Lab assay of single mutants.
Amino acid sequence: MEVRTIKVFTTVDNINLHTQVVDMSMTYGQQFGPTYLDGADVTKIKPHNSHEGKTFYVLPNDDTLRVEAFEYYHTTDPSFLGRYMSALNHTKKWKYPQVNGLTSIKWADNNCYLATALLTLQQIELKFNPPALQDAYYRARAGEAANFCALILAYCNKTVGELGDVRETMSYLFQHANLDSCKRVLNVVCKTCGQQQTTLKGVEAVMYMGTLSYEQFKKGVQIPCTCGKQATKYLVQQESPFVMMSAPPAQYELKHGTFTCASEYTGNYQCGHYKHITSKETLYCIDGALLTKSSEYKGPITDVFYKENSYTTTIK
Results as ranks from 00 to 15, higher is better:
G202Q: 05
M209P: 08
L81H: 13
L290E: 14
E308R: 03
N61L: 14
C182A: 07
T5L: 11
C190E: 07
L17M: 12
K158E: 03
P34D: 13
M207K: 03
Q195P: 13
A40K: 14
L179D: 01
V221F: 05
Q31T: 12
V8L: 10
T199F: 04
E71A: 11
V21D: 15
S79I: 07
L173I: 14
Y155R: 00
P224E: 14
T64P: 09
F9E: 03
A146K: 09
R4I: 13
Q238C: 03
T314W: 10
A117K: 03
T159C: 13
E204L: 05
N111Y: 01
D165G: 00
H176D: 04
L88D: 00
L65I: 07
T313E: 06
T313W: 09
E264D: 04
F56I: 12
L59M: 15
D109Q: 08
Y113F: 07
T199S: 08
M207T: 09
Q31G: 11
E125W: 00
T43I: 09
L163E: 06
S294C: 15
K219D: 06
A108D: 04
K255I: 14
K92V: 09
D62M: 04
V67C: 15
G257H: 03
K293H: 15
I152Y: 01
H273Y: 01
D287R: 08
Q122V: 02
D109G: 07
G39A: 14
D165M: 06
V22W: 04
Y138L: 15
P241T: 06
K46P: 12
E296K: 09
F305Y: 01
N187V: 12
F128M: 06
S25F: 12
F259N: 09
C271K: 13
T11Y: 09
A247G: 09
R4G: 13
T120D: 03
D165I: 03
P60I: 08
G143L: 07
E144R: 07
T27F: 14
K191N: 13
K219M: 10
S104A: 09
E264L: 09
I15C: 06
G272F: 03
V189A: 05
L153K: 03
L114T: 03
T258G: 07
I315P: 15
M85Y: 15
C149L: 09
R167F: 04
Q175G: 09
A150Y: 00
V185K: 08
L254G: 04
E125H: 11
T27I: 11
K127C: 10
F242Q: 00
S310E: 15
T292Q: 08
K158S: 00
T211P: 08
A117H: 02
Y269F: 15
P60T: 06
G228S: 03
Q123W: 07
E239N: 06
Y252N: 00
A146Q: 04
G82K: 10
V243M: 03
E239Q: 11
Q20P: 08
A289L: 02
Q237G: 05
T120E: 06
D303P: 02
H273K: 00
K275I: 04
L200S: 10
L126Q: 01
I277H: 02
N157A: 03
Q238W: 00
A177E: 09
E125V: 05
S310I: 15
Y96D: 01
T292C: 07
K127N: 14
F217K: 01
L37W: 14
S295G: 11
G210I: 10
Y113V: 08
L290N: 15
Q216S: 10
N16M: 13
C156K: 10
A108H: 00
G161F: 05
S104K: 02
S79R: 11
C156F: 04
A136G: 07
T266R: 06
E253V: 15
Q122H: 03
M85H: 15
L153S: 09
T314E: 10
D38C: 11
K307L: 11
H51D: 14
V236N: 00
C156A: 09
H90C: 14
Y113G: 02
I45D: 15
E264Q: 05
T43A: 12
W107F: 02
E2S: 11
T278A: 05
F242E: 03
D287I: 10
Q251A: 07
E215G: 07
R83Y: 06
K280Q: 15
T302V: 10
R83I: 06
A289G: 08
S171N: 14
T91S: 08
S246Y: 15
Q230W: 11
L291P: 00
I6M: 11
T199G: 04
P47L: 05
V3L: 12
V42H: 12
N147T: 12
S310F: 15
G220K: 02
G82V: 14
E125I: 06
D77P: 03
S213V: 01
E239D: 10
E253K: 08
T192K: 11
Y265A: 00
S295P: 08
A177D: 03
T198L: 14
